[in-house]
Simulated assay, not measured.
Amino acid sequence: MSETPGPGANVARLRKARGLSQTALARRADVSLSLLTKIETGQRALTQGTAATLARAMGVTLDELLGVARAADETRVRELTATIRRFDIPGEAPPVQEVARLLGDVVARRSAADLAGVLDRLPALVAATQSRAHHTERPEDWAAVASAYSTVYWLAARHRWMTLADLAVMRQRVAAELSGPLAVAIAARDEAGTFLNTGDFDGGLTVVDRAVVAAASIRDEHERAQSLNALHLRGLTLAGRIKDRREAERHRAAALRTAEQFDVDEDIDGISVGPANTLTHVVATDVDMENYRAAIDAAPGAVDPASGLPATRIAPTHMNVARAHLALHDRDRALDSLQDAWAAAPQMARVHPTSQELLRVLISLHRYSNPALTRLARRADVGM
């Protein structure tokens, strides 16, 4: 069996590069030596909460430990970065219809988890939206800029390109403040996401709490509900990563209250708010908090096709169900759920650290040939 990808495999590599023994790292991170050994050898899946703890103990960020995913087109990444750099140097302003077309296309591809398609079109979208907004200075045009940069953050976070993600949320915040309160709330949600992606969960919770206070005063009732739902869901995820049950319950209760104000889930340029999306976050946090049975029982409602949720929400939910099954030693159902994640969003599954880690552990644990696992490993370009 050849070496497989996955964050857990990076733990041993980073530990050895720093001259640390397993005992020394376990002591520094305050984790059991048995757990660390199992993580490194692929007998236990590395959770992002534990990964953040190990990363801090080794003096690296969470994204460094998880590993950076390769871009489908490195030239497009350079083009996107150059376009972002020219934020204050607008080009010719395109007509509003062209901006709407570009934004609609990118949002649709984001919802379908078409990472390559999003990357291919983002440079043109970013250039068009910021050029038009600089020329018109209208709030609705700045809202389009904020939405474009929200998608830049989303794409960068999926690949753990955190320098690009940080730059994106900085630009997003500027555009949002020239737009309106909903855009400001979404920008704060994405800013908290950069803290989540680098393992600074407490810092992310502080960003969320500040934004919740501001969002509570939004005059438009519907925008207030959209803003608060998005923010509390981010807070729920952050609290779950550090297993802060009290904080998680506070955000969970608030998210559920705001979700009740929606008959169906709504899409804000690629970001879902509403009851079904709230349930996907509840499932994820239940897994983080080791409430595995609760997560498995709730999951069918979260992945029901009738919910209308995009692939970007369906696939991670299947991954979280796979985590729960694996924690309960049900490898077959874990593999089934991981296959469901790949079916829903193959490009996302290929770069997602949870998917990579689940596949690594399943390969390590299976001591016999499993045709389904072999097929999945082949799709992921992993040797067995």
Rank of each mutant, 00 (worst) to 15 (best):
E3H: 12
A9H: 05
A26V: 05
A29T: 10
L33G: 10
L33Y: 14
L36R: 07
L36H: 09
I39F: 07
T50W: 06
G59M: 13
T61G: 14
T61W: 01
A69W: 00
A69S: 14
A71Y: 03
R76C: 08
R86H: 09
E92I: 07
E92G: 02
L102M: 12
V106W: 01
V107K: 01
R109W: 09
D114V: 06
L115S: 08
V118K: 00
V118A: 08
L119K: 00
R121N: 14
P139R: 09
E140P: 01
D141N: 14
V145F: 10
S150V: 00
A157H: 10
A157V: 05
R160G: 03
A165T: 09
L167W: 07
Q172R: 11
A175W: 06
E177S: 13
L178H: 15
L182P: 03
A183T: 04
A188G: 04
T194F: 08
V207E: 09
V207A: 10
V207L: 04
A215M: 06
S217C: 05
E221K: 12
L233S: 01
H251C: 12
A253H: 12
T258G: 04
D269T: 13
N277D: 11
T278H: 04
V283S: 00
V283T: 07
V287S: 04
R293I: 13
I296N: 03
D304M: 06
P305Q: 05
T312A: 08
A315F: 00
H318R: 03
M319T: 02
R331K: 14
Q339K: 10
A341C: 05
W342P: 01
P346V: 03
Q347H: 05
A349W: 00
H352I: 03
S364K: 10
S364E: 15
N370F: 01
P371G: 04
R375E: 15
R378D: 10
V382W: 02
